[in-house]
Design a protein around this nucleic acid. Structure first.
Lengths: 333, 333
DNA sequence: CTAATTTTTTTACGCGCGTAAAACTTTGAT
DNA sequence: ATCAAAGTTTTACGCGCGTAAAAAAATTAG
């Protein structure tokens, strides 16, 4: 930086100021600096930079499970928004493990991030650890809400999701049963069940929740095994099955295939299956899965913007933003 | 650190040494430090740490596309190995974009990593940029090889992959045609095609390569559209189709479904379809996809170990390690 | 027990930058 | 042209640690 100063004829502190905020120096000064930058390709040392800065430009992005394409997609979007806003995103995955989630938070602390975009594991999360972290670091919670912690919450409106797709299913054939995990990892699952119950009641139908056993994040396998068991015991009371999420639905479709049960909305099909999430893979199941999709772009945009305004000084009370999903009609229901 | 020194009764430089390598101090000293650490939960400032260290403990992990569960899985494994070996992994994705890949490399440079585990985009990669990066930073290339750059290459043996599954298909029914993208992003695709040609020749069969159009990383959609076109023009000369990779196969299966073509190895099925990669989703296609799986664990273990030995001073000539895959027999072929 | 060796302490410097304060210069408005 | 405001330079310090060198202490070998 010293060299760049002598080459450009600008003092080092001014150059430091330039790197902090290029707009904060006079245009003529900025031009001189950028001209010198062209010739000498200097890169500031990020370690020295961040050592004395009160606030780094780092942003942590934490998702529960990166190998789930849904989270991978959200993470990709968030990453781009951070870069566009001049922040340096770093990606972390809890890999479905609460202990790892705490470790990630610990690692994040030492990065002294300006802010964090955090999708918690949910039920399994260490609440106390999350809360403590949110006290120390400006954190925006997304995807699944855990109390009213952090700066704000941004996610999908699970009530709208399930109400909407339940409504569709009721209007087009028999009212659906609801296929879910007994002990879901994600708190959104409870909202979806409740929304299903409410919607069924408002239509005057008797709800039927089929809860299946299974722990962990291998939802497809849980759905497949649970599906087999449910069929064997005749637990599906109607021809329509609304799954709590797409991955469960994918497993259920495999179970149907293995049992020779035709799925779809045509006359020759025994049942209909619908999912929820708009999973990237849902287009390629057989039959293609009817589902209700997150507004990926809007969720990540809103979440990122909310974090940045908070970082940049805007204090606002805790707020929950829940965005509506869009029904995607395909052959499965 | 100063405080910790006074509390533990050990001098600051010795504590610094401890954090650099806990085993380098006398056991009694180490015990004292760790006892003090229990009480005062001090965390070294990573920025100050890395500023003067010749070598940081950072390791970059770069994959071409994180939303592809195959890469997500590899990345997860690599991450764990890094942590286990005492390094701090940071995950990056090129998101299928060569320009982003160069940007990632640039970001990585400023992290001054001890080493990098890099899976290049392949054909689209900026060779010159990759080579220059490898000159500056100890880099191990994995998954897809680009010349003989970096410390070494670790990946799967694509020749063995395709030879093995071609052999299986030939022995069990009609010899397969080969379904692939005309201009594949990944260099492994060329190896697989060549291996198919060699295998077919060694059996005395006439190979039949069906190359379909399509750019980018949306393999499923490319496979689906290409499949439709191939069926319409009668381009499949036998009842068996070996796909260049699983994602293409998933798309092809969807095309089959849409055309009402039954896939499987039973009498009533018109064709058989097989993939390659052992994609996490291949178990849940309809029918479940016969494929040949990467040895994920071995590839990542070998890659990580190779990088660490190189970092820790072992100089060895460039080497290519290619691990064999395992045939996974399912209903599709 | 003494000498040789290893480990630790003391002392001291510097990494590359952020940042503060005061003096100075440029710019824009009157 | 004159003055105030904004931007810039100079000077100086410190962040939290790594690291080097020399002195001191602890351990081991003989």
């Amino acid at each position: 930086m010293e060299e760049l100063a002598s080459v450009s004829g600008i003092s080092r502190p001014t150059i430091s100021k330039y790197f902090n905020e290029p707009g904060s120096v006079r245009p003529s000064t900025r031009a001189k600096i950028e001209a010198a930058l062209e010739l000498h390709d200097y890169r500031p040392n990020i370690y020295a930079m961040n050592q004395n800065r009160k606030l780094t430009k780092n942003v942590g992005v934490v998702v529960p499970l990166l190998s789930d394409p849904y989270f991978a997609e959200i993470a990709r979007n968030l990453e781009q928004h951070c870069i566009a806003a001049g922040y340096r995103p770093t990606l972390f995955s809890s890999h479905g493990d609460p202990a790892l989630e705490v470790e990630v938070l610990d690692t994040l602390r030492s990065l002294k991030p300006a802010g964090v975009l955090l999708a918690p594991l949910g039920r399994a999360s260490d609440r106390a650890a999350l809360e403590k972290f949110c006290d120390d670091v400006p954190t925006l919670i997304f995807d699944s809400s855990v109390d009213e912690i952090g700066l704000a919450f941004v996610g999908s409106d699970n009530f709208q999701f399930t109400a909407h797709i339940t409504d569709y299913l009721c209007r087009t054939s028999e009212p659906p049963c609801f296929f879910e995990m007994k002990t879901p990892a994600n708190p959104n699952a409870h909202r979806r069940r409740q929304s299903y119950l409410d919607a069924m009641e408002s239509f005057g139908y008797t709800p039927d929740v089929v809860s299946i056993a299974g722990e962990g994040w291998g939802f497809e396998e849980i759905g497949r095994l649970g599906g087999h068991e449910a069929f064997e015991n005749g637990r599906f009371s109607t021809n329509s099955i609304l799954c709590s999420n797409d991955r469960l639905a994918i497993g259920l479709l495999t179970a149907c295939y293995e049992r020779g049960i035709r799925v779809g909305r045509t006359e020759d099909c025994r049942i209909r299956v619908a999912g929820q999430d708009g999973h990237p893979h849902s287009r390629y199941t057989c039959p293609p899965l009817t589902t209700i999709s997150h507004n990926y772009e809007a969720v990540s945009q809103t979440a990122a913007d909310a974090l940045f305004t908070a970082i940049e000084g805007q204090v606002s009370p805790w707020k929950s933003t829940r965005l509506e999903g869009k029904l995607i009609l395909r052959d499965s229901a």
